[in-house]
Amino acid sequence: MVAPLIVFILAFIGWPIIWTMILSFTNMTITGPTATHFQFIGFANYRQLFSSGSGLVQSIFLSLYYLVASAYIGQALFGFALAYLMLSCSMRVRKTVGSIIIICWLVPEIIAAWMWFAMLSDGGTLQQGLHAVGLPYQTWLISHPMISVSLANSWRGVAFSFLLFSAALSDVPAELLDAAKVDGAHTWRRLRSIILPLLATTILIDFVLITLGTLNDFTLIFAMTGGGPGTASNVLSVFMYQQAFSTFQLAYGTAIAVVLLVIGAIFSVIYIRTLRRRGALNFVR
């Protein structure tokens, strides 16, 4: 009964992973003579990739920026703040705002990109709004591309961390917090000494999952800025795409893909270990 699963995974995931590794040692291109008659060229792609001026260092830096700004601050921290504030908030507002945030998350990524693209464009609603109150506006997509895409990704993705933290916060025993309150522990103290330790595993799982999701995010940035202007928002995934399909260096692109795979594998292993410790992977008997 497991056979179809194994066939699908081997044919469409297993083989491409192996083929990625193999191609990264060749000189294959999309067009031209080396498209079909490619040769093995050893570590040349990797030497080119890790040499200065390849753009890899800039891309890694931009990916890290995107990760910290949009995932860690814009989604995890902001999502936790929302979930925490909602504990002491009127029921109606909580339900309404919760639904709004979830809808932002459910809208297809390309549509989210389109809305933000339109809003931040030259002549878009943000410019008009700022002009209406007498403030200047430079098109952020051009002057601050990383801020633009990070804002869009926080807006889109905060629901995931918010839902995860909301569920975990509602499991924190109220008696514990009440007892601490009676003993004179203030909000900050209760947060630091009771809530955060109880949420440690949830926080770790959230960080691992949003790290994986954000490092592999492509659509939002590709659609909003295309990695530009120039290479100003060329995160790893867009960098890989451009090397493989825009400059037709297919094999060189796979060398970047291997870097992405290695990063993904490391975080996957952390994820498995966390789940195991939590008992989520245990067998029934």
Binding site: I9, F12, I13, W15, P16, I17, W19, T20, L23, M28, V208, L212, L215, N216, F218, S237, M240, A244, F245, L250, G253, T254, A257, V258, L260, L261, I263, G264, A265, F267, S268, V269, Y271, I272, L275, L281
Partner: peptide, 18 residues
Amino acid sequence: VFLTGLPIIAIMIPTYDY
């Protein structure tokens, strides 16, 4: 579980090729 964490985007180039 390991596969759920792997970036699908990274295997698109060889998939396109094959």
